[in-house]
Design a protein around this nucleic acid. Sequence first.
RNA 1: GUCUCCUUCGUCUAGUGGCCUAGGACACCGCCCUCUCACGGCGGCAACACGGGUUCAAAUCCCGUAGGAGACGCCA
Length: 462
Amino acid sequence: MSIRVRFAPSPTGVLHIGSVRTALFNWLFARHNKGKFLLRIEDTDKLRSTDENTKAIFEILKWLEIDWDDEPVIQSQNINRHKEVALDLIKQGKAYYCYCTPEELAAKKEAALKAGKSYKYDGTCRNRTDKPEGIEPVIRLKAENDGRTTVNDMVQGEVTIENSQLDDLVLVRSDGTPTYMLSVIVDDHDMGITHVIRGDDHLTNTFRQIQIYKACGWNIPEFGHIPLIYGPDGAKLSKRHGAASAQDYRTLGYLPEAISNYLLRLGWSHGDDEIISRKQAIEWFSFENVGKSPSRFDMAKLQNLNAHYIKERDNQSLLNYIIPFLNENLNEIQKKQILLGMNSLKERAKTVIDLAEGIQVYIEAPQHFDEACSKYATPNHLKWLEEVIEIINNMNPIIEKDLCEKVKELAKAQSTKLVEIAQAIRGALCGKLVSPSVFEIIEILGQDESVRRIENFIENFS
RNA sequence: GUCUCCUUCGUCUAGUGGCCUAGGACACCGCCCUCUCACGGCGGCAACACGGGUUCAAAUCCCGUAGGAGACGCCA
């Protein structure tokens, strides 16, 4: 039988980076096994679900190149089907109406907690025959009390629980809407899901869900519960750590291929391999190599991977990518210059934000000079810069290497070091003391613009 | 509290009883390269949570302990 998996986010907020990894693992598992990767939007929480969030989920998955098969299933459209299943279970005596009010249950729970006991629903209405007036009942599953249930999890291995731990979970709320527990099982069954791959936090839910499968007489799928991702401090990764959603990382200038590669290595490995292409990932992915322990999100490593993938991208693609990060539109000359300077720029960038900053040198002359520049604006430096202008004016066309040689000669003649003159030039061209080779920048910028900037620098510090 | 899971360098991990004096990557430190910053190259620091077993042999198997996490909703 062909493998069918699903990714089932709820559109109650942005896509958490941990969910993205779940999606990725599902996707890789499907692609590796030539199965289907389906998408299901779990929008049954009508209060918190929004269309915007749903659209954002589609958008970010596309951006990450996690494509899904078939049309996404919208869970809220299956509500009637879910209810039918619950009603059918009642007919079969496998579920029952429960008239306990939330208040009564809350009181029981509080009492249990006070007595230091764990709370579970006591089954008051299990064998109830009367129908109290004025109370809209919920539907509860008659869960098994005896024996034990074992799951052979693809990640966690064999996990067993005593059925006495389970209680009669609610299938349909008093307002007639199905609960998550019911909906998930019915939809997974109807969609023909063969493997449920999800976060570790669902592991204990699995035992409850198995009860539903059994009551319905359906096949139980395979499960794979992947460990959660924590923040650097070991607590659940959240906004508090700076960024928790895929969209956040996109905004911070991380490339989708870097995020995928990073997430893949978080919890999964293939020997000592670190840089892994999509193609290889599909070929290699298997649950045998998924780790059991949770991992911490390490921004530094993501950044390192990002720097790698920036270097790997071709210049035109990078330019296109950067444009939305810029405040201004680029003209053709600027684009041409940026493309010429891109090789040196991308060597230095960790993020696309870095790149966007780096290309400023080809967009406009410095608006101000960093404090540190003044160190290279002494009368001597300004004098040397006059000489540099001479050199530039006498060289046509400007060749980076030749220019460098000439300035080296100048430094020697002036009994100073190249760094002194180069830094002065850098300050003049960029307004700051960090950039690619100044000679390369002059070559790209051309005679007029370079001289203009250096003259402006001299004027500014005279 | 109850149940379940987890535990190898700071971080991600390799390791499936002898190949382990525990390997790689990121981070960090040093050196080289060098017009700055990066890149790159070379080198360094650094871990099997603890305690008992089993075995000729344990990071690897078993049992405890400690620590961490998750679940315990008419949320998903």
